[in-house]
C-alpha cells in the first residue's frame, strides 16, 4: 500500500469521524443545520415528555406505588402491585413461549429451508407482513384462539398469547438477520471438516448469532410490555386485588392500569399514573440494558 493511499484513507476516516470537511458551500451548511434541527427536535420532545412526567409523578414515587393494590378509598395510597406483577408474568410467559419458537422458526427458514419452494416463500412473505400488523389485530386473533379453547376472558394465558403473536414476527426477522450476518466462511469451514448441517448450525452459526438474537428478542419484548391495545381485546382487567399465581389466573397489566386512570380527574390518580409511567419506562429501560449487556458480552469480531 502506497503512502498516498494511507494518507487519503486517514483523511477520509478523520472527516467521517469529526464531520469536518472543507466543503462549506451554503447548501451543505443548510443541510447540516437541518440535520441538527431534526436531531434536536426528536430529543427535545422526548426530554420535555420525560421531565414533565417525572415532575408530575414525583410526589408518588414511594413504596406504596409498588406494594399496594389500586385504591378507590385512599387515592394517595393507590398502587400498581397487580399491574406490575401481571406485566412481569406476561413478559416471562411471552419470553418462554416466543424465544424458542421464534429462534427455531428463523433457523429453519435461514439454514434449512429451500427458499425456491413456493410454500417457504409464502411463509417468508407472511412473516414479513405480520411484523407490520397493528397490535390490536393480534388481540382479536388471540381472542379468537381463546374462544376456540373455551378459555375465559382476562386470563394470564390470554395476554401471553396476544403478546406472543405480536412478538414472534419481530424475533423471527431479527434472528434471521443475525444468522445472515454470520460469515459464510464459518459455515463452509465447519462443513469442510465433515460436520453435518445440523452440527454446523448448533455449534457455529447459532452461538455466533447470539448477540443479534438477544438484542432483537429483548427489543421485541420491550415493545410488547408497553402494549395496552391487544390486552384490552383479550379482556385483561383494570383492577384485581390478588397476585397472579398461575397461567389461568385473572390478571391486570401496568399499561392497562395507567390507561384506566386517564379517565379519573382526581389529582392523586394523575400523580399515580405519571409515577406508574416512570415505573413502566424503567422496566423497559432495564430490558434494553440487558440487551446491550448480552450483546457486548457475546460479541465477537471476525
Amino acid at each position: 500500500m502506497s503512502a498516498a493511499t494511507v494518507a487519503a484513507r486517514e483523511t477520509t476516516a478523520h472527516t467521517i469521524a469529526t464531520g469536518k470537511s472543507r466543503d462549506r458551500t451554503p447548501g451543505s451548511l443548510i443541510f447540516l443545520i437541518a440535520l441538527w434541527l431534526s436531531l434536536f427536535f426528536g430529543i427535545a420532545v422526548l426530554t420535555v415528555l420525560l421531565v414533565d412526567t417525572a415532575i408530575k409523578g414525583l410526589p408518588r414515587m414511594d413504596g406504596n406505588l409498588l406494594t399496594e393494590y389500586d385504591s378507590t378509598l385512599f387515592p394517595e395510597k393507590h398502587g400498581f402491585r397487580a399491574g406490575i406483577l401481571g406485566s412481569i408474568w406476561l413478559m416471562l410467559g411471552t419470553a418462554l413461549f416466543t424465544v424458542p419458537l421464534g429462534i427455531a422458526a428463523a433457523t429453519y427458514l435461514e439454514e434449512f429451508a429451500d427458499n425456491k419452494k413456493w410454500y417457504n416463500r409464502i411463509i417468508e412473505i407472511n412473516i414479513q407482513n405480520l411484523a407490520a400488523v397493528p397490535a390490536i389485530v393480534y388481540g382479536i386473533l388471540a381472542l379468537g384462539v381463546m374462544g376456540l379453547f373455551g378459555l375465559a376472558d382476562g386470563l394470564v394465558i390470554g395476554g401471553i398469547l396476544a403478546l406472543s403473536l405480536l412478538t414472534l414476527p419481530i424475533i423471527i426477522i431479527t434472528t434471521r438477520e443475525a444468522l445472515r450476518a454470520v460469515p459464510s466462511e464459518i459455515r463452509q469451514g465447519s462443513l469442510a471438516l465433515g460436520a453435518t448441517v445440523w452440527q454446523t448450525t448448533w455449534r457455529n452459526s447459532l452461538p455466533s448469532a447470539v448477540p443479534g438474537i438477544a438484542t432483537g428478542t429483548i427489543l421485541g419484548l420491550s415493545r410488547a410490555i408497553g402494549e395496552a391495545a391487544p390486552l384490552v381485546m383479550v379482556g385483561i382487567f383494570v383492577s384485581v386485588r390478588f397476585d397472579p399465581a398461575s397461567l389461568t389466573d385473572m390478571a391486570s397489566a401496568l399499561p392497562i392500569q395507567i390507561y384506566g386512570l386517564a379517565s379519573n380527574s382526581q389529582e392523586a390518580y394523575q400523580q399515580a399514573a405519571n409515577a406508574a409511567i416512570i415505573v413502566l419506562l424503567l422496566m423497559v429501560l432495564g430490558l434494553n440494558a440487558l440487551a446491550i449487556f448480552i450483546r457486548n458480552k457475546f460479541q465477537r469480531s471476525w
Partner: peptide
C-alpha cells in the same frame, strides 16, 4: 374472594 374488575 378474588374480584377482577374490567372497564369495557
Amino acid at each position: 374472594i378474588k374480584v377482577a374488575v374490567g372497564a369495557a
